[in-house]
Simulated scan of single mutants.
Amino acid sequence: MFTPEQRDRTRARLLARAEADDSITGFAYTGSHATGTGDRWSDTDIVMGVRGEVDVTVARWTDWIQGEFDPRHHWDLPVRGASVVRLFLLPGWVELDITFTPEDEFGPRGPQWRTVFGQDQPVEAFAPPDADMLAGLVWHHALHTRNCLVRGRTWQAEHWISALRDHVITLACLRLGLPTADTKGAHLLPEEFTAPLESTPVRSLTEPELRRALTATITVATAELDHSDRELATRLRPMFTELT
Rank of each mutant, 00 (worst) to 15 (best):
S83V: 00
H73R: 08
G49A: 07
T145D: 04
E191W: 12
D8T: 15
A216C: 07
L197R: 00
P238V: 02
S83R: 11
R237G: 04
R211I: 01
A28K: 12
I161T: 01
D43H: 05
A16D: 13
D226M: 12
L174D: 07
L96A: 00
T145P: 12
R60Y: 00
L197A: 15
R13N: 04
L89Y: 02
F100D: 03
G36P: 09
D55W: 06
E242Y: 11
R7N: 03
W113S: 13
L15D: 09
W139Y: 14
V94D: 01
R211K: 14
D132V: 14
L77H: 11
V168H: 08
Y29D: 13
V116S: 01
E231L: 13
W41R: 10
V168D: 06
T217H: 09
T194D: 05
A125G: 01
R203I: 01
E209I: 00
W93G: 02
L137D: 11
L137G: 05
A131L: 15
W41S: 05
L210N: 07
P111F: 12
G152V: 09
L232M: 14
L90D: 02
P78G: 07
D97Y: 01
A82L: 09
S199F: 01
G81Q: 03
T145M: 05
E191Q: 15
P196A: 04
R175K: 09
D43C: 07
F126G: 12
T57W: 01
T234N: 10
E242C: 12
L174N: 10
V85L: 11
D43R: 04
P208S: 05
T244N: 14
Q112D: 04
A34L: 06
T154C: 01
D97L: 03
R151M: 11
P129K: 11
L164M: 15
D132E: 15
T62A: 02
F69P: 11
L197C: 00
W160T: 13
T101W: 09
R230S: 05
S32A: 02
T145L: 12
P78L: 14
E19A: 15
G81S: 03
W93S: 05
A20M: 07
P179W: 10
L90E: 06
V84M: 04
P111E: 15
L210H: 05
T183S: 13
A131R: 15
D43F: 03
P128L: 12
C148M: 13
T99I: 11
G136W: 12
M1E: 15
P129V: 11
G152E: 08
C173W: 04
W61I: 04
E95P: 00
R51M: 07
M48D: 08
W93H: 02
R72T: 10
R114A: 15
E191C: 10
L225Y: 03
D55G: 04
L15G: 01
L90H: 00
A20H: 13
P208K: 10
E191N: 14
D43Q: 04
L87A: 09
L134W: 00
P78S: 15
C173A: 12
V94C: 04
T3Y: 08
D229P: 08
L176N: 14
I218P: 02
V138M: 15
E209R: 00
R72P: 01
T3Q: 07
L225W: 06
E192S: 14
F193P: 04
L14K: 09
P196D: 05
R212G: 02
N147R: 12
L96R: 07
R175N: 03
D70G: 05
R109I: 13
